[in-house]
Amino acid sequence: MSRQVTITIDGQQVTAAEGDKLLWVALDHGIYIPHLCGIREKEHPDASCRLCFVEVEGLPNPVTSCTLPVKEGMVVRTRSERVDRLVRTAFELLLSNHRLSCAKCGKNGRCELQKIAQERGLKLKLTRMRSLLVEKPVDDSPEKFYYDPNRCVLCGRCVWADREKAKIGAIGFVRRGMDRRVAAFWEQPLADSPCIECLACVEACPVGALVAKEMKE
């Protein structure tokens, strides 16, 4: 077992194994930091959602906590004016490409975006940016779940679950830029892909993109 270290997060002393990523240490101790793309088991996090910024004493700029290994005596603040600004902008960027009709969403109430909005006092609507959402068809072909690309935040958790948990390789990222999306080979319906409907990706999805059907009512 690796060495135990003591760090301070928002004035609270916590102990953790040296080298663990700050994001998970904080979450384990009940200190919430917004996050979407983070995967605990992943050695090299993508750090692509840009939501888990924190201030660390001694570092000039806010850093993503999912990539930061904890060190003895580290002093962390999860909120600051700069952190809030970064998170606010990253969050609105995500929303600018997201179908915002929570009432009609299968994940309403269990959505990670809603949780982040509540925790950080952010609005679930666009204030500074305009919507760039291009409506894409919902893939209703699998028996047990459906895939709504309009609600996808491209966190990559489903792709990771598909590869590392289910060990299938049915879905992946395709295209790039604004056209980037999660899809099967040749963007064919998931029912025609190697997908075995194990629901590992549905479990991994933090938003309303991959939703199990029986929950839909």
Binding site: I168, G169, A170, I171, G172, F173, V174, R175, R176, A183, A184, F185, W186, E187, S193, P194
Partner: peptide, 10 residues
């Protein structure tokens, strides 16, 4: 996986 080839090609 086939999708990986498609991913690179697109």
């Amino acid at each position: 996986p086939e999708v990986d080839v498609y991913s690179v090609a697109t």
